[in-house]
Simulated assay, not measured.
Amino acid sequence: MTKARIRTLIFASLIIGAIGGALIALGIMGSTFNQATHVMTHLANPPLFVSGICVAVVASILMGIAWIGSILNTVRLREWKWLLIILLVRGLGLLIYSFVGPEPQR
């Protein structure tokens, strides 16, 4: 997987994740909570909430594909420092790799 494709997946995941988060927040707005038990007793807009969850899951899948692709690239190139950066720093390491990491050979 090329770094450009990884970068595209990262940015698509971030944008789609933000949309999913907004849908979740809009679905929760106006819900009623029990103050004594801190439990939601009525969800204001369940279809909007569920669609936000589905959109967030799609964003997570895209980010996972980019993460696995970058791990496979670094292992194939035997770039162990980049592999550690991607594994330990996760999202930020993946973004840094997509801009300045080594390019896989064809």
Rank of each mutant, 00 (worst) to 15 (best):
K3P: 01
R5W: 07
I6G: 03
I6M: 05
I6Q: 05
R7W: 09
L9W: 01
I10E: 01
A12L: 15
A12S: 13
L14W: 11
I16G: 08
G17C: 08
G17R: 08
G21H: 09
G21W: 09
A22K: 12
A22W: 13
I24C: 07
I24A: 03
A25E: 08
A25M: 12
L26V: 01
G27I: 04
I28D: 07
M29I: 14
G30Q: 06
G30S: 06
S31I: 04
S31F: 03
S31L: 04
T32D: 08
T32K: 10
T32F: 02
T32R: 09
F33T: 15
N34R: 03
Q35H: 07
A36E: 15
T41F: 07
H42W: 01
L43G: 07
L43D: 07
A44W: 01
A44H: 07
P46F: 10
P47Q: 05
L48A: 03
L48D: 00
F49W: 13
F49I: 08
F49N: 14
S51G: 02
G52L: 05
I53Q: 13
C54W: 15
V55E: 04
A56D: 11
A56T: 15
V57T: 13
S60D: 12
M63N: 12
G64W: 06
I68K: 13
I68G: 02
I68A: 13
G69L: 08
S70W: 03
S70Y: 02
N73V: 07
N73G: 06
N73K: 04
T74H: 01
V75N: 05
R76P: 00
R76S: 10
R78I: 00
W80T: 06
W80K: 09
W82N: 02
W82D: 02
L83S: 02
I85C: 11
I86P: 04
L87S: 13
L88W: 04
V89I: 15
G91A: 06
G91E: 00
L92A: 12
I96F: 10
Y97V: 08
Y97E: 06
F99R: 07
G101V: 04
G101Q: 04
E103I: 07
P104W: 06
